[in-house]
Design a protein around this nucleic acid. Sequence first.
DNA 1: CTGAAAGCGCTTACAG
DNA 2: CTGAAAGCGCTTACAG
Lengths: 345, 345
Amino acid sequence: MSKKVSIKDIAQTVGVSTALVSYVLNNKEKEARVGKEIAQVIRDTAVKMGYQPNQIAKSLKTGKSYTFGLIVADISNPFFGNLARNIEDEAKKFNYTVIFASSDENAKKSQNLINILTERQVDGFIIAPAENSQDQIEAILKNNIPLVLIDRYFKDLGTNCVVTNNYEASYQAVSHLIEAGKTNIGMVAYQTDLAHMLDRKQGYIDAIKDSKQLKAKIPLVKMVDFNAGQEEVEAGIREFFAQNPTIDALFFATNTLTLKGLKSLNKLNYKVPDDVAIVCFDESEAFDFFYSPLTYIEQPLLEMGKKAVQILIKNISEKKSANMQVSIASKLIIRQSSAATVKKN
Amino acid sequence: MSKKVSIKDIAQTVGVSTALVSYVLNNKEKEARVGKEIAQVIRDTAVKMGYQPNQIAKSLKTGKSYTFGLIVADISNPFFGNLARNIEDEAKKFNYTVIFASSDENAKKSQNLINILTERQVDGFIIAPAENSQDQIEAILKNNIPLVLIDRYFKDLGTNCVVTNNYEASYQAVSHLIEAGKTNIGMVAYQTDLAHMLDRKQGYIDAIKDSKQLKAKIPLVKMVDFNAGQEEVEAGIREFFAQNPTIDALFFATNTLTLKGLKSLNKLNYKVPDDVAIVCFDESEAFDFFYSPLTYIEQPLLEMGKKAVQILIKNISEKKSANMQVSIASKLIIRQSSAATVKKN
DNA sequence: CTGAAAGCGCTTACAG
DNA sequence: CTGAAAGCGCTTACAG
């Protein structure tokens, strides 16, 4: 029923101009040198009338929305859910609000989301870019909208980005498997040109190639489509083993791949770690409950989220700030699934 | 570099008034009876100039932001992440955008978020309310902002809400345990007055009391604080068993409780289902990987998300639409963790 | 068929 | 110390 109260209503009630009310309510009394008593009256009246500022009007006038857009592949994936939560918390510290959206790894959807968010005048973007969305990212830049890529990035674009050390982490994880005595380590990865995935693959490949221990230094990578369901992953893994019967360890490139992969291994009756040792990128509650707790690469989600927001805020407030490419170290958590091979004799 | 192009820029370029441009770009040519050729010129020019409407300005004028606020306990909890995703998708169908926020079950944070979102002129709220936030919900209503509660609700308030059939689902789950031959079924729940939790508890209690099979019809409920960490839950469960050594089944009230509970059982060396059978509310990827795959209550997250959005949109568009309380049936997924007791002789 | 004008709720030089 | 006024980018009666 009650109409919303505006600055004008307060001004009329107190008997001053809207300018004064605005100054006081924005704590600019000193700059504007507003009388102390009248300031107090304005403040009290605002409270009494239940005034809530209209951010939309403020935004239109100031050109700042104190909002930014977060585009991830899928907010229901706990990896992104956690990232989103950390981003939300950090954004709040700067009085920013987050509009989130899921692109499903789909460039068309991604473009659509970018348009919607741009029209809503977000002050900046944090994006985990989908494949083939490079031109969209460039367009944002050309529009002079601050932007930070997260999780993924584009090598050719010198944009801000915050990622984990994909190459090194993979290299380390695979080296760990080699040290554990595994001799035929396969990798299961997504079929994509996105740099983070290529880095993970390259880390795997180089660890194999650099190894002193391995006799056969032949990388074995199985590619799976981004939208592959349980059946496709299962078929892929079956095929992988058929082509390479001597595989004794698998390195999974993401949490979603791992979950589907583990279910596949169960179905195919491979025992972890005796038949196949496992290491995977990302974490999941499920990894703790697998009969052979998984060795995994823990990404620094908290630091990544924080850093992304900080860079974005910096870009928003400073006219021309240099681009930053930040890589934050992840951590290999070693558990049973990669236990050392017991020598049989 | 390039300044954003406005309706005024287009008007000047074409040589017409901003009114015409507005009509055309909003597809109101017929109502405004704009000339066909000039309409086409306007459209072409808008595209050529790369025009993107300023939603903020639109909102200020029309009083509609096409945005709503989603407040959940924690977006990084997959339960809420999934809900959020379904809400996002449904909202998009109505050209709505979602601002999300996490309250951490904390009334103070919740109030803060509501204020922020109200100032941003959201057209409505979808809220999984925190404990003791009843007055906040009432305040939203008094402000005439459309609102739908989700997951949880307040019995005294006749607000819109979309929940699952907590009482019946619990009743059914516990009855299932009784039928499986369990004789001392305990429940682990959160200590809270929130109605969804009370309903789950009551469902448990009544199933015990109504049972024909059970000799001892004594409900055993262990309460745990909402913010309890792994240690507290573990201590609670240890205590629970100490006080009730004959417990042979546990019913967990949520996914987070279940995850901590399972870890506790592992530590305490209870075997599922032989020492304790398990049934839990909600689902989790982890449940598939527990050595004894869990029997759980699957909530209809897709339908809940959709329905909540639909009710909200209806409330926004219709001046005075009746409140709706919707309960959607969940589904008991029966697996090994609640396998029937084998009679020993 | 089209344009001039008011106004959404704010902020902020400017003038006094 | 305070007020009148312009203007952010739009929409929408109103008048012609």
